[in-house]
Amino acid sequence: MSTAVLGAMYEGIKHIFKHTFTMKYPYQKVLLPKGFRGRHLLYMDKCTGCGICAWICPERCISMVPVTDNKEYPQNPEKRFPQYWYARCCFCHFCTEYCPTGALDYTPDYELAEYDRELLLWSPERLSRPPTNIGEYQSVFHGKDGNQGVTFEPVIKQKSK
């Protein structure tokens, strides 16, 4: 009985001397794997305006809207593009997978919080902006089988070691 108490205490105290697990989030961000399902990226020069994405979407959060800019889209003469309402999208990315022309893509952007609900409506132009969120931290095991603890370290540093 008392040995078990001491064992539990020893186990807890041991961890004071291990590496810290916590990541300092707003300054350090995790490296997201390729194909992480964040917000969408729309290639406006590929989309034909067929509307298959809007059909497959389980939440009906895509609407096809006409775009009013001066550019010409030969593959899409009516200039109709998908517009996303992120207050409803569940990031299942069935739209990306079912798109016949590959006009949609995954991005690692997930910080979509807004003060205003209306701002969650993403127009086609906004969707075609390149992703901004670039993380570089990844979990690293220290010691044999991680017995010295786990930390999050920048990937570039790991490679150069």
Partner: peptide
């Protein structure tokens, strides 16, 4: 839900990543 009481920050996602929620708290 915004008709029940005023809401300060909206975080989309289903579920939002914990980092996304923390970014909302930063906001």
């Amino acid at each position: 839900v915004h008709k029940l009481f005023p809401i300060d920050v909206y975080v989309p996602g289903c579920p939002p990543r914990p980092e996304a929620l923390l970014s909302a708290i930063v906001k």
